[in-house]
Design a protein around this nucleic acid. Structure first.
Length: 616
RNA sequence: GCGCCUGUAGCUCAGGGGAUAGAGCAACGGAUUCCUAAUCCGUGUGCCGCAGGUUCGAAUCCUGCCAGGCGCACCA
């Protein structure tokens, strides 16, 4: 509860405040459905809706007998800015009012003729639509003021305040090299982490390392048969990879090796010292490699809780499942029959007594809830594991955990070669490290060619190269499969991170020459009347809702696409509206505008885990 | 066999009930006395997989089919 003067505002949260030199205090408040600005000056309160959408929603409320929120939902953007900035389609009213939509639009336009709002200056009918035209000056000033005041927090909100979201991402099977296939979970998960954090959630990032299971039995068998210490220490990750591939090649002709591997894993689960010793070495050797890549990518986790972390909780889980009476013995194994729910049965314990992936996921989920009391738990894991998660969540539900419905599998498509899928077992894999290094090298070459005078080329190349790889993965809808193509990875033109970074660098260059900006210049926004300027301002205003949309659908691509739009709008502006070579008043307004663009680009790219260099 | 996902321009993909379906790449042409040409502008392209249905209105929702991918008990 916040008190605005004498008016109590329930459920409001102060987002930020700004004390002007004049003594005026500006408060931005967040309500459950909208947010508002309150300006205090001589005890007069003025409440202004944040967006013109909401303003229109309240204006139309009485005229069309619809809830403001419903009106806002129906509002859309006309195909051509010349038609207006926002359109209300009148079809919905046609049935209720028994009139053709065009007649309704005309009538509403008549009702509103001569009227204007704080952000719109006129409304007119065009066919079945009631089109609103923005007051570009008032709107532009408001947008620039807000962005300038919010700065590096522009777009952020408090909608997730007090809530916790646990995000399971990256989660590679170690003892295998970090392949390009691991990139997706890593960057999508990390981006979701940043997005939820921007919305005020407390985020817990967990790297659920695949550091347990039969693959370690396989490695031990391979090492016992063919391994040698010197080679292992010389190049641990590649050597383990070779052993892993060799195991699978040999196992095709000698299936007994698989039994040997299972036996070793069983020994590991029983705590056999020799097995544990092997496991510890293999685990730490490959983890070193993983950590170097996370460092390069700037990714951190709150916890590296691998599957092995839950070992001492597995018997408890098995006991719980038995107590609840949902498990049955079948062919010597312990399973849960899910036929009633249209799902195949799941196995929790093999006939040799060893546990499985799902058993450990069960233990992990329970542990996470007990530890973090999450409001939501996300699993950023490939779409091919959809069934696994349906089963996991169903078993949790059968165990009586009502928080099971807050567990969400965030699936993504497979990354594959033109020729077919990647396979670690067959050695058909691309090393992520190689991809990153090549991208950085290519970026470096382009910088050498385009900007030979740049001071720190290596730093810029690193940012641009890593950005290209990340953006390539984040800009398409995560659910779609992607084909790995070197040409595409190493392409820096068109809809890429470099396009956005380049726009950012251009802005920084202008700002350096101008020597800075001042928030007060927002008053001059009246001067921003060019089509390119109006389009840019409208696009900038969309940023907060894009972040919300990305979180709601768990799709960072929403933000990536949006940033392409921002950069494109900026580039058009750049080519048609000189900043430094314009009249002082216009120059100030334009400087503030491009500074706002800069903030949106930096904040938005930041949510994708991508940096923006000041020069490139 | 059963289940899930995907199918939009030559290629890669946006758009996920609303006005004439959009970008990038590739092709061709143009823009640099001026803030970085990794940019911008212009030219051409579509049975939105197919067939039904719901709706005032469907690329978008529903059903069936086709094609591709991915799953379906001792791997993770």
């Amino acid at each position: 509860m916040v008190f605005a003067g004498r008016i109590p505002l329930p459920d409001a949260i102060i987002i930020w405040h700004f004390l002007h030199q004049s003594g005026t205090l500006t408060l931005y408040l967040s309500f459950p459905r909208f947010w508002a600005k309150i300006i205090w000056s001589n005890y007069k309160e003025e409440v202004v809706m944040h967006t013109y959408k909401e303003e229109i929603g309240s204006i139309l409320q009485s005229l069309v007998e619809l809830e403001p929120a419903r009106v806002v939902e129906l509002l859309e953007t006309p195909p051509d800015p010349g038609m207006g900035d926002l359109a209300f389609p009148c079809y919905v009213l046609a049935q209720r009012w028994k009139q053709p939509p065009a007649a309704i639009a005309a009538r509403l336009a008549r009702d509103l003729s001569g009227k204007r709002g704080r952000f719109w200056e006129k409304a007119e009918a065009r066919g079945p639509y009631l089109n609103f035209h923005l007051d570009a000056a008032a709107f532009g000033r408001e947008v620039l003021e807000q962005i300038s005041a919010a700065g590096e927090r522009y777009g952020w909100s408090e909608s997730g305040r007090g809530k916790t979201v646990v995000i399971d991402y990256s989660s590679p099977n170690i003892a295998k090299p970090f392949g390009i296939g691991h990139l997706r979970s890593t960057v999508i998960g990390h981006s979701l982490y940043l997005i939820f954090q921007a919305l005020g959630y407390r985020c817990i990032g967990i790297n659920h390392l695949g550091d347990w299971g039969t693959q370690f039995g396989k490695l031990i068998v391979a090492y016992e048969h063919w391994g040698n210490e010197a080679e292992l220490l010389a190049d641990p990750v590649n050597y383990l990879f070779e052993l892993y591939v060799r195991f699978h090649r040999s196992a095709e002709e000698e299936p007994a090796l698989e039994d040997e591997a299972r036996a070793w894993f069983k020994r590991l689960e029983e705590g056999d010292p020799q097995a544990v010793d092997y496991w510890t070495r293999f685990r730490s050797l490959s983890l070193e490699n993983y950590e170097s890549i996370y460092d390069l990518l700037g990714i951190k986790f709150e916890y590296y809780h691998g599957e092995s972390h839950y070992n001492d909780r597995l018997t408890g889980v098995i006991r719980l499942v038995r107590e609840k009476g949902i498990a049955v013995e079948s062919e010597g194994a312990l399973i849960v029959d899910l036929e009633k729910y249209g799902l195949p049965p799941v196995m929790l314990q093999k006939k040799d007594g060893a546990t499985l992936y799902l058993t450990r996921d069960l233990a992990a989920a329970i542990y996470r809830y007990e530890t973090f009391h999450f409001d939501r738990a996300l699993y950023v894991v490939g779409a091919e594991q959809k069934l696994h998660f349906q089963q996991l969540f169903k078993v949790l539900e059968l165990l009586g955990f009502d928080w099971a419905r807050n567990c969400v599998h965030v699936p993504f498509g497979l990354i594959h070669f033109k020729e077919g899928r990647m396979s670690t077992r067959e050695g058909k894999i691309i090393f992520l490290e190689e991809v990153l290094q090549k991208a950085i090298k290519m970026a470096r070459e382009i910088i050498e060619e385009k900007n030979p005078g740049l001071a720190d080329k290596d730093a810029a190349a690193r940012i641009v190269g890593l950005g290209a790889v990340r953006f390539g993965d984040l800009s398409n809808d995560r659910i779609k499969d992607v084909e790995f193509d070197w040409d595409k990875v190493l392409d820096f033109s068109g809809e890429t991170a470099a396009y956005i970074q380049y726009a950012h660098a251009r802005i920084c260059s202008i700002l350096r020459k101008a020597g800075g900006v001042k928030a007060e210049w927002a008053i001059g926004a009246t001067a921003l009347q060019a089509e390119e300027e109006k389009a840019l301002i409208k696009t900038l205003a969309l940023f907060p809702e894009k972040i919300e949309a990305a979180a709601e659908s768990y799709r960072p691509s929403t933000i990536a696409r949006y940033l392409i739009d921002v950069a494109r709008d900026f580039n058009r502006f750049y080519h048609n509206c000189p900043v430094l070579n314009s009249d002082p008043a216009l120059q100030q307004a334009r400087l503030l505008l491009i500074d706002a663009v800069r903030l949106v680009l930096v904040n938005g790219m930041g949510l994708l885990g991508i940096e923006s260099p000041e020069e490139m």
